[in-house]
């Protein structure tokens, strides 16, 4: 299960590295040489369906290897390091 979550996180993080290309003068045959890339570092979030729990969300940061337990308004309740299996 842990591996599946990690794989899902990896897939999401690779998708968020979006290549932004735009060539304003393409219609005139201009070939742009500049590619603008923005790496968005996002965390994989799982919402807790238990409304009575103080923990509202689990946020995984795969790159840095930790999980955040988030409460209301994304307040950090605790941080747990992900150990390799």
């Amino acid at each position: 299960m842990k591996s599946k979550i990690l794989l899902a996180c990896l897939a999401i993080s690779s998708l968020t590295s979006e290549a932004q290309t735009n060539n304003l003068y393409e219609i005139f045959g201009y070939k742009t040489i500049v590619v603008y890339e923005t790496k968005i570092s996002e965390m994989f979030k799982i919402i807790n369906i238990d409304p009575t729990s103080d923990i509202k969300t689990l946020a995984y940061n795969v790159e840095e290897g930790f999980v955040l337990f988030l409460g209301l308004n994304d307040s950090v309740l605790s941080k747990v390091k992900i150990e390799p299996e």
Binding site: Q20, N22, N23, T32, I33, V34
Partner: peptide, 19 residues
């Protein structure tokens, strides 16, 4: 549209905001 003359590119607004 944006024209960036320091490198000859056309950055999108999102890129400028972030960068």
């Amino acid at each position: 549209s944006n024209v960036e003359l320091t490198n000859g590119g056309f950055p999108r607004d999102q890129w400028i905001i972030k960068q």
